[in-house]
Amino acid sequence: MKKIKLILYIFSFTLFFLNNLNAANSQQVDKISKNLRCLICQGQSVYDSQSDFALSMKILINKKINEGKNEKEIYDFLKNKYGEWIVYEPEISQNTILLWVIPLILFIFGGILIVRKVSIK
């Protein structure tokens, strides 16, 4: 009985979850500039910054989108100019793999510790 309830929980959950997959991107420039770090006022995003650099950057991103570049191409273009530092979300690479993986490993490790200290019956 317990199990059935649990399955029902999970089932109703995933059903609605999948129903919602159609993501759409509207405000591309905002989205991209939020993920870029301003080089003038470091610590702010290009989106938030009012510096000349940031304002021009927003115009440039707009231009690039009109040229038909996608988000990734724009990031790559800018990384090429200013280095990996400019993006707030580091891509998964040799340098950053640990960044993404360590928290998950710790989570799994924690889970194992808990399972070992808990008895089912």
Binding site: L39, I40, F53, M57, I59, K81, Y82
Partner: peptide, 13 residues
């Protein structure tokens, strides 16, 4: 005029 070309050159200001 709009600073975009400087960005293409890799300038920050």
């Amino acid at each position: 005029l709009d600073g975009t070309k400087s960005i293409e050159l890799g300038a920050i200001g």
